[in-house]
Design a protein around this nucleic acid. Structure first.
Lengths: 192, 192
DNA sequence: TGGGTCATGTAACCTGTTACATGATTAG
DNA sequence: CTAATCATGTAACAGGTTACATGACCCA
């Protein structure tokens, strides 16, 4: 998957490992992450596979760099992957895992957990996003059709966050009802 | 993470590796997956860590089994994890990755992609869910507080699916508008 | 002179997937 | 008779994280 992300990124112009890392960090961070260590490793295997090709570029005042560009084989692979209706691999959601086993803790603590989760914005911070947006729109001068797809992924992030907040509200309501029922039960017991 | 899921599962009664696998397959499948190979490996390392303890049980008419139960140390670790507000590790969404690079394909193909995605139910099939629900409610006789948390995760799945369908609708609308604009542009050109 | 950016990587480790291997019982 | 269920694992590989290591230039 990361391999295909890299192919997509260099499909409109060669990039260094470092540049690829910055794009992941600044623009794709709301749906994928990648460390330099992994990027350089993937670049090596992709070159062996013939999907990309390396050019050593000498620079003055800066370290030399290795620019990776896509080969025709790499572009074929990119299209093949885009068209392939592979099911996503096993879905993992750590928050739901926690939620599932939360019964081990007091209800009050769980309500606090959901309140904190609701208030914590998971979506990348405004500042970075504005920069990323600026980059995108600069690219869009040449390729307006690229910007639209970026907008679609951003909209997903927004909708996901909204849904998550609503889900937290639902959880809080459910747990409060549950807690209140228990309270009444207790009071009745001690009243007898 | 899987380790903590396993701890949670055996916190209310020892289980075999096989039983743990069936719970992942039947009840937790909407937010986590795990193969037996991984489960048995994790059980080994968890035993070494002192979180769980193994009892060999002889059976007649069935193969012998190894029942794993949680130790006090394991239970401490479960609570520690539940309370730990660790950020989730790098979020990965293959669908958004594809969306981002979809500009490489014709718009018409992309619209078809979103239509297919919208119509494909990612949520586990009804039948299995009913069985899982029955299991949960059977458990709930003893522990009504456990069933509520399961309900919360199910509700997340429902809300997520709904959001995803709405997002697909949004994407289809955006791409149709984009396509229509291009069409008009083309007609104007050929009209000149 | 100290921190940020540009630039490249290695090593060890952990997590997850795929494929393989075995074998008894039970229900249709 | 055959497929499903119960039951246990190993081996190889792929993907991802953390920690470490180096070094020059530029700006404050």
């Amino acid at each position: 998957m990361l391999k295909h992300g890299i192919l997509g990124l260099i499909s409109n112009g060669g990039k260094t490992g470092y540049e690829i890392m910055t794009v992941f960090r600044d623009s794709l961070n709301h749906f994928w992450t990648a460390q330099t260590s992994q990027i350089y490793r993937e670049l090596q295997t992709m070159e062996k596979a013939g999907w990309i090709r390396q050019t050593h570029v000498l620079q003055s005042g800066k370290p030399d760099k290795n620019v990776f560009s896509i080969t025709p084989e790499g572009h074929d692979e990119l299209l093949r992957w885009l068209r392939d209706d592979n099911l996503p691999p096993g879905f993992k959601n750590p928050f739901l895992m926690k939620t599932f086993f939360m019964g081990e803790l007091p209800v009050e603590e769980n309500i606090a957990f959901f309140r904190a989760f609701r208030d914590a914005s998971v979506f990348p911070d405004e500042g970075k996003q504005v920069t990323a947006a600026a980059d995108m729109y600069r690219q869009a001068v040449d390729h307006p059709e690229k910007a639209i797809y970026w907008k679609l992924t951003i909209e997903f992030g927004r909708m996901y966050e909204k849904m998550q907040r609503e889900w937290c509200e639902y959880c809080i309501r459910e747990l409060e009802t549950f807690r209140n029922k228990k309270e009444i039960h207790k009071q009745q017991e001690s009243g007898q």
